[in-house]
Design a protein around this nucleic acid. Sequence first.
DNA 1: TCTGGGGTCCTAGGACCC
DNA 2: TCTGGGGTCCTAGGACCC
Length: 417
Amino acid sequence: MIALVDCNNFFASCERVFRPNLVSKPVVVLSNNDGCVIARSNEAKALGVKMGAPAFKSERFFARNGVHVFSSNFALYGDMSKRVMDTLRPEADDMEVYSIDEAFMVFEGPAAEERARALRLKVEMWTGIPVSIGLAPTKTLAKIATRIAKKMPEMNGVFALRSPADINRALQRCDVADIWGVGHRSALKLKSFGITNALKLALADPGWVRRHLSVTGVRLQKELNGTVCSPVNDVAPRKKNIRTARSFGAEVKSLAGLKESVGTFAVNCAMKLRGEGSCCASVTVFVSTNPFKPQATQYHGARTIKLDVPTNDNLEIVAAAMRALSEVFRSDCTYKKAGVLVGDIVPSNQVQLGIFDSVDRSKRGTLMKSIDTINAQMGRDKVRLAVQGFDRKWRLKQERLSPCYTTRFADILTIRV
DNA sequence: TCTGGGGTCCTAGGACCC
DNA sequence: TCTGGGGTCCTAGGACCC
């Protein structure tokens, strides 16, 4: 059986672990820049708070209804995720971390459901995070099982789809739009042909599915019928692109101002590359104006620089990013967002060297290692390039940030007894 | 005043090769 | 008069996921 372990309202639950007085209170977490709602506790959902709702339109609603609002604290959520995954891993015969709050696990043998129930209690006890677990023969069916586990309180957070009769009943009750892999567009299309629930899709003519939903649809249909097309994958494949992008807390007009942020994003991408043991051969910079100010000049610029020799070196990637930035920059615009994307990624031990290459790569590698070591101990960007600047006018708006309870010594809770 | 960030996969069409 | 068959690589756009 394949189990999908899904943390309930993950970001909201993370905040509540360290604020037990908020249990059973409505809690929401906002996106970067305190922009829109990205996580809601059950109580917040019951009040009608919508996913993606812009926060500034809901301020008064939150105040009136006693909703506790948090800026997103990804240092906290990332660390809590690691704790949950570390708790799950020894219990699985195979495991794939699918996202920050979900993991697929393989349970061999007959006692899958009992193991899942025990695991759920263990995760809650060890980490404070409540999870729901769905079990089924394929990932797609496990997703459906997890939805049922969440919806039906009498299942105590675990639901297994095993017999063909159970599976058929679940598929019949599952709206086609709620299937994993069916998005808004495909749901509309399917419904226009009368395919309204998952059972109808499972029974549809495979040729028809191929024509209208391409091979992804065919795979999805097989998974609904119990044939594994997406196995649980233990080893995370190497990333093909890595991106760092931010909307600015305050809009930026000058090239110098953009350089600070784009330089910082480029360094961030280089760090992520080194963390993966990868190098990139292309660097893309993109900038954009504020789409919510239609009266202002609108502009989306992007420029890609190809590198002769793949690299994960801060200096080289920043240099390429600066060149790209000066080419996309327009002085008649005010910018709200910028980002850096590195692509054409190869393993750093398989880099094809260049005949005219003038960089001493082993020396640079040592330098990057030193910078990473110092910054890991002393704090992010303590050693930085001058172009990254110091005033960070563009930095995020985070007015309701919780402490980094688990990753910063100064933020550790003090408990008085 | 004010609306996130980071990914993957598939297809069609153009350009090019022998 | 009449003009094939097989392949690769790249890009843009669409769709989807959390």
